[in-house]
Amino acid sequence: MPLSRTPRRWIPETDPAPRTRPRGDPEHASRATRSAALPLAGAVAGGVALALESVVNGRLGEHAGSVAAATWSNMLSLSVVVGAAVFLTALRPAFAGLRTALQSGALRPRHCLGGVAGGSMILTQALTAATLGPASYTLALVSGQTLCGVLVDHLGLGPGAPHPATRRRLAGGLLSVCAVALPVLAAPDAGRTLALAALPFLAGAALSWQMAVNGRVDEAAGRHPYPAVLLSFATGSALMLAAAAALAVLGRLSAPRSGPPWHYTGGLLGCVVVLSAVLAVRRIGVLAAGLGMVGGQVLGSLVLGPLTGQPPPHLWAVVIGAVLLIVAAVMAAPSAPARSAPGPLPPLLTVHPPADALDEGGK
């Protein structure tokens, strides 16, 4: 006998997942602002520390020699990082993940050499910072970092997906070059200043590559920053020790003269810079942290110049260059990643077939 069919019943199901607050909710926005304020302030403080580090290493390079100053700064940073291992946890799994990534080929040995770029930056601090002054040195460093950062993001050298070099980003990178060219060309000895500014510009470009490869190492170590920081200072110290040994063999390693104790604190400031960058990126992302550090570097260099007796010869040119550099950094920064499309919501309505229909195949 034919089976009778009953209409399908629509039974609403309850959604067990609680609904989140809408993004436009005032309380949600206020909480997000408060949570981002502290790490953003830390990024700005890290930028100020980087500007102060250039002053300290520059003064040390004047009476200890550039290679000796860079070697001391790197070795002091390495000593602090090695000593910090006593107070840290989960180091063994982090290094095990790093070793596994190297063995599988997911991480290349060149990714562990980011400290070479860091050592070159400290060397340029000792060579040129005292002559250029805090403002011009910082503008040249950040300019190279901004322009090369566009290329690094475009090639996808760091962790995550590549960020294409759009017209806006390329214009921001070129604007950063104009920002440093203005105060350099306005200097009394423009030719010599331009030649000196090329060194921190190249060091800033290398710094962008260092940040990218350190991000790869951090990712391979399970998002534990210690292996990347340790490798950075270890390779930088090895490079500087090799350079100092070569100069010593040739008899050209200058003996350090006496100087105030604060001239030897550059390595401590380097640790502050790295730590503030890691903590800020973890909380507010690379874009906001990078812009915060750029702002801190520029503002710190403008304040430190008069305080250290090295005011820029043309303050108006430096101020305009600083404003242009901040605008260039905003333009060259990658756009916020597109938010992933929301997944399907749990079904609010479910179709339940009639019981006799389930038995139809067996009759």
Rank of each mutant, 00 (worst) to 15 (best):
residue 361 G to F: 13
residue 11 I to V: 14
residue 177 V to F: 11
residue 162 P to S: 09
residue 121 M to P: 04
residue 186 A to P: 09
residue 310 Q to D: 09
residue 245 A to C: 08
residue 111 H to Y: 11
residue 320 I to V: 15
residue 197 A to D: 07
residue 357 A to R: 13
residue 359 D to F: 14
residue 200 P to D: 03
residue 356 D to Q: 14
residue 229 V to W: 06
residue 169 R to I: 13
residue 59 R to F: 09
residue 346 P to T: 05
residue 19 R to N: 12
residue 45 A to Q: 05
residue 339 R to Y: 10
residue 54 S to F: 13
residue 246 A to T: 10
residue 75 M to F: 08
residue 99 R to I: 07
residue 17 A to S: 10
residue 18 P to G: 02
residue 204 G to W: 05
residue 83 G to H: 07
residue 295 G to D: 00
residue 24 G to F: 09
residue 13 E to I: 14
residue 148 C to R: 02
residue 133 G to T: 05
residue 66 S to N: 08
residue 360 E to V: 14
residue 176 S to I: 02
residue 239 L to M: 13
residue 98 L to S: 02
residue 140 A to Y: 02
residue 337 P to I: 03
residue 298 V to N: 00
residue 247 L to F: 08
residue 317 A to M: 03
residue 268 L to T: 01
residue 286 V to F: 13
residue 294 V to I: 15
residue 340 S to Y: 04
residue 11 I to P: 08
residue 103 Q to D: 09
residue 93 P to F: 04
residue 63 H to G: 15
residue 289 A to S: 14
residue 299 L to Y: 00
residue 118 G to D: 02
residue 325 L to I: 05
residue 151 L to M: 10
residue 75 M to T: 08
residue 19 R to T: 12
residue 355 A to H: 03
residue 362 G to K: 08
residue 334 P to Y: 01
residue 306 P to V: 07
residue 37 A to R: 07
residue 2 P to E: 13
residue 301 S to Y: 03
residue 116 V to L: 15
residue 339 R to F: 07
residue 196 L to V: 01
residue 49 A to N: 10
residue 295 G to F: 10
residue 251 G to F: 13
residue 238 A to Y: 10
residue 70 A to V: 12
residue 71 T to C: 14
residue 35 S to P: 10
residue 242 A to F: 04
residue 213 V to D: 03
residue 297 Q to Y: 11
residue 119 G to K: 06
residue 311 P to A: 01
residue 120 S to Y: 14
residue 289 A to W: 08
residue 284 I to H: 02
residue 70 A to G: 15
residue 125 Q to S: 11
residue 28 H to V: 15
residue 56 V to K: 03
residue 197 A to V: 11
residue 294 V to P: 04
residue 204 G to F: 03
residue 40 L to K: 03
residue 184 V to A: 08
residue 160 G to W: 04
residue 233 F to R: 05
residue 199 L to Y: 01
residue 325 L to P: 01
residue 27 E to H: 12
residue 3 L to C: 08
residue 159 P to H: 02
residue 303 V to I: 13
residue 180 V to D: 02
residue 139 L to T: 01
residue 91 L to V: 11
residue 320 I to G: 00
residue 163 H to A: 15
residue 223 R to N: 14
residue 3 L to N: 04
residue 298 V to D: 01
residue 110 R to G: 13
residue 85 A to Y: 06
residue 187 A to W: 05
residue 329 A to Y: 07
residue 238 A to R: 03
residue 282 R to A: 15
residue 182 L to D: 01
residue 78 L to Q: 00
residue 290 G to Y: 05
residue 263 H to C: 11
residue 11 I to E: 09
residue 158 G to A: 00
residue 207 L to Q: 07
residue 67 V to I: 15
residue 158 G to S: 00
residue 230 L to E: 11
residue 180 V to W: 01
residue 121 M to K: 09
residue 276 S to R: 00
residue 245 A to N: 01
